[in-house]
Every structure is written in C-alpha cells, then in structure tokens.
Simulated assay, not measured.
Amino acid sequence: MTIHIEDLKFQCIIGILDFERQNPQDVVINLTLDYKYEKNFLNYADIVQKIKDVMIKSEFLLIEDALDYLNLKLIKEYSSIKSMNIKITKPSILPDCKVSVSNSYKSQS
C-alpha cells in the first residue's frame, strides 16, 4: 500500500540565515510512504501531526537534517514502512522560485 501526503503546509523555524532563525516561515511537505498492509493500517492523520510536531519543535538548520530525522522518526514509529520519499519545500525563501530538497529512503528491516 502507498500513502500520499501532499502539500502539507505550516510554519516553522528552519534555515541557517539569521532572518530564518528569528521568524517561522512557510514550509510545504510532500511524503509518499510504501508500507506492508497486514490488517493494520497507518493512520495518516497521526503521521501528519508527527511531522508537524517534529518540524516545529526541532527548528532544524538544514532541510537535509530535517529529512533524515523525519525518516528515522517515522521508520522507528511504524515498523510496516518499507520505503518513503520526503520532499520539503521553502516556498518563500527566494522571490522568484520555490526551493526544495528531497530524498528517498528504504527500511533496513
């Protein structure tokens, strides 16, 4: 089975520039999770809330660190996840484009 969480938008502190550390900015997260369905489903509402909680609490310096941490957190919490693709976008950091970083992960189990 695959869960798609698309265009999850909220504000958090993320970035290395001085102004990024002072005020929350918009982020958009897109996530695709492949998981083994065995009569236990993954609650996408819980996953969305965990993502928001981690991002808001952690105040990451780099998007890359946020991606890796979200992967570890979700894999640890949900053992049925086989793989995932996460993309974090900062839509307002540059005036003429959106900036994103993404990565794909596979479970080691």
Rank of each mutant, 00 (worst) to 15 (best):
G15P: 02
D34W: 08
N23P: 01
E59Y: 08
N103L: 05
T89L: 02
N103H: 15
S79R: 15
I51K: 07
E6G: 11
P91M: 03
L8T: 09
P91L: 09
K36G: 03
N40V: 14
L74P: 00
A45D: 07
I81H: 01
D26K: 15
E20S: 11
S107L: 02
D96G: 13
K57R: 15
I75M: 09
S92P: 00
V28N: 00
D34G: 10
L42G: 02
K73M: 03
Y44C: 05
E38A: 13
L61D: 05
N23F: 13
C12S: 11
S58V: 06
K73N: 04
I86W: 00
K87I: 09
Y105K: 12
Y37I: 11
L72H: 13
D34L: 06
D46P: 03
K36T: 13
S104T: 14
L17E: 07
D7Y: 07
Q25V: 07
S100L: 04
V101C: 06
S100E: 03
I14C: 03
D96C: 09
S92A: 07
V54Q: 10
L74A: 07
K98A: 09
K106H: 08
S79I: 07
D96S: 15
K9C: 10
M84V: 09
S100W: 05
Y44V: 14
N40W: 11
K73Y: 07
C12I: 11
K52E: 07
N40L: 11
I93H: 04
P91V: 07
D34H: 13
F41R: 14
L72V: 13
C12W: 02
K82G: 01
M84C: 13
T32E: 02
I3C: 03
L42R: 06
S107G: 04
K106W: 01
K36L: 07
E20T: 15
L67E: 02
Y35R: 08
H4R: 14
Q49L: 12
S92H: 14
C12R: 01
I5V: 14
C97G: 02
V101R: 08
K36Q: 06
M1A: 07
Y78W: 05
K39R: 13
